[in-house]
Design a protein around this nucleic acid. Structure first.
Length: 826
RNA sequence: GCGGGCGUGGCGGAACUGGCAGACGCGCUGGACUUAGGAUCCAGUGGGAGCAAUCCUGUGGAGGUUCAAAUCCUCUCGCCCGCACCA
């Protein structure tokens, strides 16, 4: 009796079996090469979506494939469990965020298991669990001890909707990355991590990451934004003791400076205008600009506005007096917050100068050019020779940069300097659901770190859920009130929590020894498993998580806690899942969930489709009919195996290897070769699957062409078994079931990956294309090893080719053995 | 504006290092089986001409290199992504 493919029945059965057998548990084994496969862990929203299903399917194929290839694979999963949605849900459902999170984790884990993903659940981590965030706090203190965590008063990004501050990386085009509200600026005292200290290394080591997508590396490079130049000091004419420092990448244009423009936030602005007639006007302007949001201020149409302060600086190179202005386009956060204006050679300065009637003085003249400050219509930022620059005249500007900076350095008025766009990482969050920053403030001792032995600093448990938001830690008196770890006197705890990105910056290390009680991770474990060999996740973390995790890894490396200097050797940024050309969303009504697919077709079908429809790094358009196709293919295999099983039981087949048999063998081995290559070297699962489909088609053709009694059942059986092995990483349940149906022992997933036999790949005869003037005009069949000369002869003898050539001249013959012959005739 | 990527049938996508464009799948057309088919199987399927053998044409567009170009070069158009007053 041939049974039907019934995924609902077999998938649950094998999932249960694998769990009972602890099939995917991994342990250190020094005799085998380790392989760390990791998918970015999810926020436990409680709802698995297609993006999740895609990333897990990709990771699972690799994990299962590599196990069969003999690697000691670690494939863990966990929860990025702190964060705002839990608080919002807590208010909505009047339930403690911890409980809400716990429930979601339970639900999501079930959904993941229903997909048949081969995780080692014994390594599960939850960043919101005290035994995890204890170590997040410990790492914060490590940073603190190493001078990398500090508190400062600063102008910071504030999201009114989320009621918390944000790091620069978490602001996208002036909007909050999470809720898209307009981000404001506020002056607050906040905790920062000194990621800028690692800017140079984070930038340089991108070169080591050969197996990272270029675009991710470029995004990080842009974000870090290194520029070389000089810092130059200008003395203030009216306050001879005071100076203004400015950063420029063009010290060669110093003679062309006709203004000094300060950011509205610049600390000197107030002093410059104090008590002058311009004071009110300037301060009003500053206040107005500072009220603007970042988008308003940086909008393309935003005009460059500046106000004269009435004060002047002295140009250190030529002693000239230059007016000091305040300009809305100057950013306090970059360089020194003061810009020397060189209108002739910088477009912004040019626009600004034209508007404010400042002189434009050309100091770099391009080869053969005759620039004139009075008539030029745009700035000239290119290279050339220096003019109007005193003793530097005639120098090429590249040379001039060095010479001028050296000159200033000698006089103590400037120096070479490298500036980064990257800012220190603001990690304080004014929210409840995060890891408390382990700091205590004592009137006697000041800022005191919580001793390691007092960790974790636990969140208050009796969460108040009456208002419209979960109150922050400052609200809980029993949490705030504490005693000083140093003097024992009364003290108050820091009430901000840490950015959740802290927790996700080291979770891949915790997986290596998730139950470690006296350290964040065990040295032997972390050194064995790290680095992550293959990391898979969405491109949206190109700068955020991936930069932070690299930073943490480097700090831990410097502290000699780990041997890896980079966390992720290979990175795969998987594409998005769309439907009908748009992101899946409730409002568009185009949502398909993994649950629905599993219910309707089974997990194997869903996995197969998602991997077959597009290469992993490309965006994927979900197509319901395409899913049907994948399901049809699995049913086709099922039926094939069932029919063969019946046949093996009743018909004794022939043992002969004839032409058809060798052809089937050849296809089998060619498929093994291709599938292995496609998974291992290219991650092109779509072409690997199509190769398996072709193999199945070939088996069908073989069976269709010969009567059952003449079929070679040994070969057939071998071919079926190898097909199952090839398909095992993609469709783990169906292959496990059919593996057993064919009478095999043990799990299919514990078998060795099939090897191909090159001898089986050789063919006796090949078809060669014959071209005339590059156009295909015929085909000939020749022995596979037919050498060039004979190839040409055989082609020449072909009747049709002969006719076509006729008595025309053969100018040239190109013969490529195994491929083609091309006659160039005239 | 700068940087990166991508343009191939009705659709998703193949094509190693320049060597038969369109594998595989979806869809569509015809046929078989069937009370029925939205199951299954077989055949066909880039466009155009032809009864046909066959011919012409075709990888966003225009040039070029080459015996040979989806692939290499130049220009150009379009789309997507990132950065964008960064001094």
């Amino acid at each position: 009796m041939v049974t039907n493919y019934n995924p609902a029945e077999i998938e649950g059965k094998w999932q249960k079996q694998w769990a009972e057998d602890n099939s995917f548990r991994s342990e250190i084994d020094y005799d085998r090469t380790k392989y760390y496969v990791l998918e970015m862990f999810p926020y436990p929203s409680g709802k698995l979506h297609m993006g999740h299903m895609r990333v897990y399917s990709i990771g699972d194929v690799l994990a299962r494939f590599l196990r069969m290839r003999g690697y000691n694979v670690i494939h863990p999963m966990g929860w990025d469990a702190f964060g705002l949605p839990a608080e919002n849900a807590a208010i909505e459902h009047r339930v403690n965020p911890a409980i809400w999170t716990e429930q979601n984790i339970g639900h999501m884990k079930k959904q993941q298991n229903r997909l048949g993903v081969s995780y080692d659940w014994s390594r599960e981590v939850n960043t919101s669990a005290p035994d995890y965030y204890r170590w997040s706090q410990w790492l914060f203190l490590l940073m603190y001890k190493r001078g990398l965590a500090y508190k400062k008063q600063a102008s910071v990004n504030w999201c009114e909707n989320c009621e918390t501050v944000l790091a620069n990386e978490q602001v996208e085009k002036g909007l909050c990355w999470r809720c898209s509200s307009v981000v404001e600026t506020r002056d607050l005292e906040q905790w920062f991590l000194r990621i800028t200290e690692y800017a140079e290394r984070l930038l340089n080591d991108l070169d080591i990451l050969e197996d990272w997508p270029e675009r991710v590396k470029i995004m990080q490079k842009n974000w870090i934004g290194r520029s070389e130049g000089a810092e130059i000091s200008f003395t203030i004419k009216e306050f001879p003791g005071k100076e203004i420092k400015t950063f420029t990448t063009r010290p060669d244009t110093l003679f062309g400076v006709t203004s000094m423009v300060l950011a509205p936030e610049h600390p000197l602005v107030k002093k410059l205008v104090e008590g002058t007639e311009r004071e009110k006007e300037v301060l009003d302007f500053v206040a107005r600009v500072r009220k603007e949001s970042e988008i308003e201020r940086t909008a393309e149409e935003a005009p460059k506005i500046g106000l004269f302060t009435g004060r002047h600086v002295i140009n250190p190179i030529n002693g000239e007096e230059v007016p000091i202005l305040v300009g809305n386009y100057v950013l306090m956060g970059y360089g020194t917050g003061a810009v020397m204006g060189v209108p002739a050679h910088d477009q912004r300065d040019f626009d600004f100068a034209r508007k404010h009637k400042l002189p434009i003085r050309v100091v770099i003249q391009p080869e053969g050019g005759k620039l004139d400050g009075n008539t030029m219509s745009e700035a000239y930022p290119g290279e050339g020779n220096m003019v109007n620059s005193g003793s530097f005249n005639g120098l090429h500007n590249e040379e001039g940069m060095k010479k001028i900076t050296e000159h200033l350095k000698k006089k103590g008025l400037g120096d070479f300097r490298v500036t980064f766009r990257l800012r220190d990482w603001l990690i304080s969050r004014q929210r409840y659901w995060g890891a408390p920053i382990p700091i205590v403030y004592c009137d006697q001792c000041g800022t005191v770190p919580v001793p390691d032995t007092d960790l974790p600093v636990e969140l208050p448990h009796n969460v108040e859920l009456s208002g419209n938001r979960v109150p922050g830690l400052a609200h809980y008196e029993e949490f705030v009130k504490t005693s000083c770890p140093t003097c024992g006197g009364p003290a108050r705890r820091e009430t901000d929590t840490m950015d959740t990105f802290i927790c996700s910056s080291w979770y891949f290390l915790r997986y290596t020894s998730p139950h470690s009680k006296d350290a964040p991770f065990k040295q032997s474990e972390v050194d064995y498993w790290m680095p992550v060999d293959q990391y898979i996740g969405g491109i949206e973390h190109a700068v955020l998580h991936l930069l932070y995790a690299r930073f943490f890894t480097k700090v831990l490396f410097d502290a000699a806690l780990i041997k890896a200097e980079e966390p992720f050797s290979r990175l795969l940024a998987q594409g998005m899942v769309y439907k009908d050309g748009a992101k899946m969303s409730k409002s568009k009504g185009n949502v398909v969930t993994p649950d629905e697919i599993v219910e309707k077709y089974g997990a194997d079908t869903g996995r197969l489709f998602i991997l077959f429809a597009a290469p992993p790094e490309k965006d994927l358009d979900w197509n319901d009919q395409g899913v049907e196709g994948s399901n049809r293919f699995l049913r086709r295999i099922w039926r094939l195996i069932e029919e063969c099983r019946e046949q093996f039981a009743s018909v004794k087949g022939s043992g002969e290897i004839g032409e058809k048999e060798s052809e089937l063998e050849r296809i089998l081995h060619a498929t093994i070769k291709k599938v292995t290559y496609d998974i291992q070297e290219r991650f092109n699962f779509n072409t690997a699957i199509s190769a398996i489909m072709e193999l199945v088609n070939a088996i069908y053709s073989y069976r269709l062409g010969i009567e059952e009694k003449d079929q070679n059942s040994d070969l057939l059986k071998e071919t079926l078994i190898k097909t199952i092995l090839l398909l095992a990483p993609f469709a783990p349940h169906l292959t496990e079931e059919t593996w057993h149906l064919l009478g095999n022992e043990g799990s299919v997933h514990e078998q060795s990956w099939p090897e191909f036999d090159s001898a089986k790949l050789v063919v006796d005869e090949v078809e060669i294309v014959v071209q005339i003037n590059g156009k295909v005009r015929g085909r000939i069949v020749v022995p596979a090893d037919c050498p060039e000369e004979e190839l040409t002869l055989a082609a020449r003898e072909d009747e049709r080719i002969g006719e076509l050539i006729g008595d025309r001249n053969i100018v040239k013959v190109i013969a490529v053995p195994g491929r083609l012959v091309n006659f160039v005739i005239r």
